[in-house]
Design a protein around this nucleic acid. Sequence first.
DNA 1: AAAAAAC
Length: 739
Amino acid sequence: MPSSKKPAVGRAAKNFDPSYSKGGPKGAPKGGSKSPGHRGYRADEGAPKKQRWNADERAARSGERSSSDRPAYGDRPAYGNRTERPATGQRSERPAYSDRAPRTDRPAYNQDRNNDRPSYNSDRPARGGDRPSYGDRAPRTDRPAYNNDRPSYNSDRPARGGDRPSYGDRAPRTDRPSYNNDRPARGGDRPSYGDRAPRTDRPSYSNDRPSYNNDRPARTERPSYGDRAPRTDRPAYNNDRPARTERPSYGDRAPRTDRPAYNNDRPARTERPSYGDRPARTDRPSYNNDRPARGERPAYSNDRAARNDRSNDGGHSSNFYPDRDSKPKFAAGDDVVLERLEAIATTAEDVVGVTFGDLGLGGNIVRELALLGAPSPFPIQAATIPDVLAGRDVLGRGKTGSGKTIAFAAPMIEKLMENNGAKDRKMARKPRALILAPTRELALQIDRTVQPIARSVGLFTTQIYGGVPQYRQVSALQRGVDIIIGTAGRIEDLVEQGRLDLSEVVITVLDEADYMCDLGFLEPVQRILRLTKKGGQRLLFSATLDKGVASLVKEFLTNPAVHEVAGEDQASSTIDHKVLLIEHRDKASIIGQLVDRQGKTLIFSRTRAYAEQLADQLEDAGVKATSLHGDLNQARRTRNLQMLTSGRVNVLVATDVAARGIHVDDIDLVIQADMPDEYKTYLHRAGRTGRAGKSGTVVTLIPKQRRRRMEDLLDRAEIESSFTTATPGDASISALANL
DNA sequence: AAAAAAC
């Protein structure tokens, strides 16, 4: 805090000036003592009042305040012992509370109080007889933590649950007067705590680190780009990034701005003089794989056919490398329907009259499921639960919104409980189950289902995902957790730090398992699975489960039971599909017309930037809208999604981060502002509506040129859809909106 | 192109 001295000096001066006795001018730093005679006033105000943290201390505390670096209230010395505290100096001049003369001996007290701090009186009992001395006061053990993060706190603090069955049973919080209001005295009295400005004055993450703040050291601590250590020292980060040092310096380089998109808008090669000198591109991990060095490569225009002919590409005819040149990148051709897995089909009729109890779940779990709104099993649940309970590896395919989470969560918990669960609730026990999800939002959502079921039998869960400080996750692990729900990155990170041990994980679930086998996810997932107990049980679930998971199945599963639900195809679905053929320039206005309605609308965009832009445009047009994509920090991601869930906005514009698994009640319209790349994405995006048998509409906006590609995609998805040409203002658009 | 890590 560079300014720490200045305000202190200013404040000292003001404190000697009676004209400041009313609290000083607006914006003046708040202090504990404003004027002579004021309770807590210190005459020796010359020194800087507040001992600000220096950078090291701050780093040591790293934004976390909790039981490790600060004792819980219960562990703190009683108030009577306060003088034993290492005080800031002034402290020792005062008698301990218990020794102190009764307050009524201080005639000046009331007077000043009334003058300077009128509100002081109101919340506070008279100091005299009705209040026990501090020394007698019961220890604060009933007040668990000082933490701001209260609401979500519990999820990471399993230890609590043992003595406190549920929040519902908890003594009402009203016995804890709200923290600030009733404790004014603290401010003036206590040199150390008292001087502390409201928590906001602490360098919160956002202050120091404006945009990526959460996860990143301040830029200034980093060497300039020129001096920067080669990027290769950051192996994991490398994937998508060329090694900077091996490229010509930015100054010499032709400006990249003329190359907006990698393939499409590229100027002719000859315009870029530096390429010849440039090191071969093989140093660039992400691009190089399927690409020869530039020099060896024929010009784009003349040789497309030759490159398309894969028969003459030497030994590279395997499809290990994505076949990009034979068709446009990300195009339909990449999007193949893999062979379906042979599955045992369960029909809805098979399930009639079956209860969760019949399937083998225990009473507590069955009751908790009923509370969660699942009184009896859905078909996919009835299909998979018995096999999971039997200890088999299971592959489960159930369409979007069909209840897959409970299908794996409930039997998983039952099994954990059977195997010495609740009785052996020792600290620092290792987690025994792991649920992996592709996105943080999905991990959170799964936890919202899993946690209450687990609690009902005395097991604990924690979320392990990135974008948030790891402290709470780590301390939850230290207290002991049975089930981990998280995303791959942070899980691996904590494992590398030695704070997470997966060796006792006997049940692993991959939600959205086919997606977890996609390029970029597969390897981390494999590494994580290899850390789990050998021969442990593995459950793979997805609405679009196919042979894409074969590599995982081969390495990690033994003789899996494959389940799906018969008759669950898109034809029988409750979702209506429409394609609008539009002019590109009309896109925003047509979307504006579509969202002019009551229900909740989820809009998918291909890029983060467009999601952001579209949300802004809608806001400008008077529609309450927000966005969800990976450029937002996790707090905003969570908040923005919550805004749709709670109905504070009716429109959410999202990238495919929201395509899979996310459940928001009553989304009745999904708009695809950009068509998806593959049919699975279409199915998952569409599946955000029409959940649990409700109806919904999916409208996809495409330019006319894309019609053919869209038809192919819908074929693969086995979806029937109408195609309609639309221009802004068409009544047909409003009709769609109100379907 | 998007997603997934960073005390």
